[in-house]
């Protein structure tokens, strides 16, 4: 009688305060049956990785609209992996130019969701790729 749930950390790394997207996604994931841990604004990569560890999440989902993603996304991946969480799916979203995406994927971001992505696509991606 297992009661497994997909657990997702929804995080806003960096300093930008635009959390409309992160909150909408958090709710949509909840409505898809996931357990969502939302940590709020201005989280450092270190805080995100540590929260991911303590909560033993299956997914870390981050949103950045400030353009700081080339620095912050890979840093989170690095710290999460350094904690021994090798299976954790790490995804990102926000105002992210197409041209930046290959480098982010190279750095271990499994998928990047740009503006206009239906939340249903995010749910499907997580279900299909979570370990």
């Amino acid at each position: 009688m297992m009661e497994k749930r997909i657990r997702v950390l929804v995080a806003k790394p960096g300093l930008d305060g635009h959390d409309r997207g992160a909150k909408v996604v958090a709710r949509a994931l909840r409505d898809a049956g996931f357990e969502v841990i939302y940590t709020g604004l201005r989280q450092t990569p270190e805080q995100i990785a540590e929260a991911a560890l303590q909560e033993d999440v299956n997914v870390v989902a981050m949103s950045i609209l400030s353009g700081a993603h080339p620095h912050l996304f890979p840093k989170v991946v690095e710290l999460v992996r350094a904690n021994g969480m090798n299976d954790t799916l790490i995804v990102g979203g926000g105002v992210i130019p197409e041209g930046d995406i290959p480098a982010l994927k190279e750095a271990g971001i499994a998928e990047v969701f740009t503006p206009g992505t239906p939340t249903g696509n995010i749910v499907e991606f997580i279900k299909a790729n979570v370990k």
Binding site: G14, L15, R42, T44, A68, L72
Partner: peptide, 10 residues
């Protein structure tokens, strides 16, 4: 340290 990656961005 907290400004890392954000300077001059928005």
């Amino acid at each position: 340290a907290i400004s890392e990656g954000e300077v001059g961005k928005v």
